[in-house]
Simulated assay, not measured.
Amino acid sequence: MMILQESSMVPDEMFKTVIEYAPLVSIDLIAMHKDKVLLGKRVNKPAFGYYFTTGGIVRKNETLANAMKRLAKLELGIELVDEPNFIGVFQHFYDDSIYENVSTHYVNLGYKLKVPNLKNLPKEQHSEYRWFSVEELLQSDEVHAYVKDYFKKINIGENK
């Protein structure tokens, strides 16, 4: 049985070993419409139960452009036409993962993506979605601190 969509190319026990001993390269798609940011409530560890950006890991031999296209389709239900704007490299460290007693380390590539007012979003990785203003997400205890870092460290508002 495979646990994650992203791990479908790697046997489960091998993927567990990778997470235990190596950082994962991931992409966060910071989906924005006008002055709002789309966040989904995570259904998996790490960051279970928090509102978080959409995204996921880059698979072996997958280009970043192809990973972004796959993740935009999988997590937002859209076909990616233009490459999103790169905003920076971030590190995410978690005490947990999809496996018991295994921590997770991501080298995360953040990209800002302008989107229409999306509806009927996929529910595989997020149980619900919400549009936040930057001020709202910075104040909310339901939004993960790593999401807030995008807006504290770099100005990625709609006009940039």
Score class of each variant (00 low, 15 high):
residue 10 V to P: 03
residue 10 V to F: 09
residue 11 P to E: 07
residue 12 D to S: 00
residue 13 E to I: 03
residue 14 M to Q: 05
residue 17 T to Y: 10
residue 18 V to L: 14
residue 19 I to Q: 05
residue 20 E to C: 04
residue 20 E to D: 12
residue 21 Y to C: 13
residue 21 Y to H: 12
residue 21 Y to N: 14
residue 22 A to F: 13
residue 23 P to L: 06
residue 24 L to A: 06
residue 25 V to E: 08
residue 28 D to I: 01
residue 29 L to R: 10
residue 32 M to G: 03
residue 33 H to W: 14
residue 37 V to H: 00
residue 42 R to T: 06
residue 44 N to H: 11
residue 44 N to Y: 15
residue 45 K to A: 03
residue 47 A to E: 07
residue 49 G to T: 10
residue 52 F to P: 00
residue 52 F to G: 00
residue 52 F to N: 12
residue 53 T to E: 08
residue 55 G to L: 01
residue 56 G to T: 10
residue 56 G to Y: 10
residue 57 I to R: 12
residue 57 I to T: 08
residue 60 K to P: 15
residue 60 K to Y: 13
residue 63 T to C: 08
residue 66 N to W: 15
residue 67 A to M: 11
residue 68 M to F: 10
residue 68 M to L: 13
residue 69 K to V: 07
residue 71 L to E: 06
residue 74 L to V: 13
residue 75 E to N: 12
residue 77 G to A: 12
residue 78 I to V: 11
residue 78 I to P: 02
residue 80 L to C: 01
residue 83 E to W: 07
residue 89 V to G: 01
residue 89 V to T: 13
residue 89 V to S: 08
residue 90 F to P: 05
residue 90 F to E: 14
residue 90 F to I: 12
residue 91 Q to E: 14
residue 91 Q to T: 13
residue 92 H to Y: 08
residue 94 Y to N: 08
residue 95 D to S: 13
residue 95 D to L: 15
residue 96 D to N: 10
residue 98 I to M: 15
residue 101 N to W: 11
residue 102 V to A: 04
residue 103 S to T: 15
residue 105 H to V: 14
residue 106 Y to A: 12
residue 109 L to F: 14
residue 111 Y to M: 03
residue 113 L to S: 05
residue 113 L to I: 03
residue 113 L to W: 11
residue 119 K to Y: 02
residue 124 E to P: 00
residue 126 H to N: 06
residue 126 H to M: 11
residue 128 E to V: 05
residue 128 E to K: 07
residue 129 Y to H: 09
residue 131 W to H: 01
residue 131 W to V: 06
residue 134 V to F: 02
residue 138 L to R: 00
residue 139 Q to Y: 01
residue 141 D to T: 09
residue 141 D to E: 10
residue 142 E to T: 07
residue 144 H to Y: 12
residue 146 Y to I: 02
residue 147 V to L: 06
residue 148 K to C: 09
residue 149 D to Y: 15
residue 151 F to P: 02
residue 151 F to S: 12
residue 152 K to P: 00
residue 153 K to L: 15
residue 153 K to F: 09
residue 154 I to G: 07
residue 155 N to M: 03
residue 157 G to F: 00
residue 159 N to L: 09
